[in-house]
Design a protein around this nucleic acid. Sequence first.
RNA 1: GCGGGUGUGGCGGAACUGGUAGACGCACUGGAUUUAGGUUCCAGCGGGCAACCGUGGGGGUUCGAGUCCCUCCACCCGCACCA
Length: 871
Amino acid sequence: MATRYNPKETEPKWRAAWERAQVFRTKSAKEAGDMPKAYVLEMFPYPSGRLHMGHVRNYAMGDVVARFRIANGYNVLHPMGWDAFGLPAENAAIEKKAQPRSWTLQNIQAMKDQFAPLGLSFDWSKEVTTCEPDYYEQQQRIFLKMLENDLVYRRTAKVNWDPVENTVLANEQVVDGRGWRSGAVVEQRELEQWFFRITHYADDLLGALNGLDRWPDKVRTMQANWIGKSQGAKIWWEIAHAPAALSRDKDSSGRNHASDPIEVFTTRPDTLFGASFLALAPDHPLTKAIAEHRPDVAKFMADCAARGTSEADIEKAEKVGIDLGIRVKHPFDPSWEIPVWSANFVLSTYGTGAIFGSPAGDQRDIEFAEKYGLPFKPVVLPPGADPETYTVRGEAYTGDGTIYNSDFLNGLTTKDAITAAIKALLNRQSGEATTQYRLRDWGVSRQRYWGCPIPIIKCAKCGTVPVPDDQLPVLLPDNADFSEPGNPLARHPTWKHVDCPSCGGKAQRETDTMDTFVDSSWYFARFTDPKSKEPINKEEAAYWLPVDQYIGGVEHAVLHLLYSRFFTRALRDCGLLDLPSGEPFAGLFTQGMVTHETYKSETGSWLLPEEIEKRDGGIFEIASHKPVTLGPSEKMSKSKKNVVDPLQIIADYGADCARWFTLSDSPPERDFEWSEAGVRGAWGSIQKLWALAEATPAADDGPATEGEPLELRRLAHRTVRDVTAGIEKFHFNVGIARMNELANALRKAEQSTAPGMATARREAMKLFAQLAAPFAPHVAEECWSVLGGAGMVTTAKWPAPDPALLVSDTLILPVQINGKKRAEISVPASADKAAVEAIAREDDAVKQHLSGLTVQKVIVVPGRIVNIVAS
RNA sequence: GCGGGUGUGGCGGAACUGGUAGACGCACUGGAUUUAGGUUCCAGCGGGCAACCGUGGGGGUUCGAGUCCCUCCACCCGCACCA
């Protein structure tokens, strides 16, 4: 008699069995012998304290890959850890009067308990927690090593300053020019900040993207755009005339604004003869210098600084500028004087913060020149245009063409003119070829408590002094005061006061902590030996890295992945890591989000999925029986209440069902729509798998070499082939579809009494259990056990399809007449083209369709199709 | 504006290098089992009475196009006054 599969009993049983047998324990490089290795990693979570469906989907995918590799005889590293520093802990500390540390550690424990029932194949002995001293001590060591190697430096930089919170805000925390929490208007402030010299690797980070052939193109493109390489020229414009009031003294950077040339970057030196003006960023040092004696320029600067930087603001912003009263000499004609303006559309953060305007060839320049009546002429003649009549008004021409109106560049193509112009600039020592990047150095200073302390001591006498190695880690004090805004470290009564390691005098600690992106930029290397006394165990890391398969959300496509790629290069060049390529992740997969329908009550408030019911073709609120408005399926979020609690699903249906469902239906890279009906479908699949196993005969009944039994075996082996390929290609949904087909066939086979069918069913069912194991591991173990499989299915050798069973002796071929399918014929697999054609011509349906027609041509594609062309 | 992606039944989606479009699942319909079902099982399920028509629209290459080429449209994502 069939029993119902009960995950509540079965799932804990098998998790305990895996634990006892230590099946997920990773072997070290030494222990592994000649086993192939596979490092499978999902992006580690922030310990919010609450597991959500996105986690389930992410970790279920990684688990399929990891379990598949284990079954294929790989030494697998599949670790888990916690990205545990960051703002939410400080917010909790403020709201709940808890300490960030205890709040975080509680959350970690809670989430560990929530992860447990999923049956994931983690080796918990590799656990890493970034807020623990054993982790951040090593991060401080890395920081100092990078400082030694000139990959870390300090400079003043502009930051978003919240005057109420007394802290720096990340760009993401500035909403419409105001602090996201305080609502205060954010100021731009100059602060001393620590930077990682990521730009040192800009070219390599860009070039090496080509080699990452197991990364999504989308992510590679996004990174390439982010790095933003452009080739062009620097041009030095000699000052012809500067206002008398402009200071003749050198400024702090050693620049004399009244006489030193203005440096400009351009990608279009070919348009130099079309120059109409120079424009400086409003916060360019020269603009500032002028502003000191020109109130109108000072006001212009202030207006620009007050203007929002959001996309919408930029869209609307009109181009405005102000003449600075300076004139510069054209590099190719010193008698030609060009006015220098400051303009709001010039960014101080890109290039040199100064441009030359060539209005006929640039849309921004033409708008600016026309607005202020600055004269200009076209210098690029589009193909086919008449030089006598060609004019440019309103709309710039940015395409290629022939250079004219341009002295020695006349007649050259755009491309040749660029080369010629750069050569001429070099000869006159007024410019040179150069490459610009959009990428900027990574500012890591945060005026925050809950982060990795920067291991630096500031001494009035000795400057910035690294904390000596034997004094690491610089521990966070555990009695931080969050009762006032600002950085608790900076106002802590004792923590920051120390003696200078160099001179022994009174000194102060750096009170900034590191951006949490630093923590996640090297954790994958730490996982290879999380207890190491070195930052990274070089031997283990050399064995395990790069990560063979990394899985996570596409929201990390740029920052996290770029920072990590930088870090592995920096670690390598500091001698801390043996990874010649510098690439941390050989394979990357970015999965989609989990979405759910949204529901709104009559009163307009959002409703939870469990607050509604669907009946009679409508949706109603359970409490009030009133109709509910169905909204689009969106990413699960608390604010829209379209969330489903994984713990509840696991309690109701079991982990296998939740895993199976999140992996079915949608391709993993796309969004996945959670639905109650879908879970029940998955529940049915799990029950069916168990029912089929239980109904499988206990003994063979002779050879299964013909008829239905043979067909079943063929299907089973095709399923092995297709599920294997599905896992390797991340087509989990297709793999599950193939298994459903096998399940349907096994169900049919229960009705058959053909001799050999018991043999075929036993073989097919065991294969099925093995194939299902990475997806639904608990029920697969239970099936394997009832089928009499040896050992555990988790460690059983992954099956290989029998090639003989992947081919048939007879084939069903479609027959087309003039490209339209008219018949199906059955032919021996061994039949040659002529024989297939003969069979096709004999077919009644074919004969009928050919009556009255003359056959022109017959195309036979062996094993595929027959197409008869007739008229 | 630049870059990337997607478009196939009522829905999610299959379809290897061009070769039977709609696998598998959901929803729905009919039937059987059951005291009952949000159970299980069986069957049907793109449109059209049919010839035929159908993979966002239009054109093309081909014996044959969801797949290749041209063009247009819609939606999504990333970046953005980047010189």
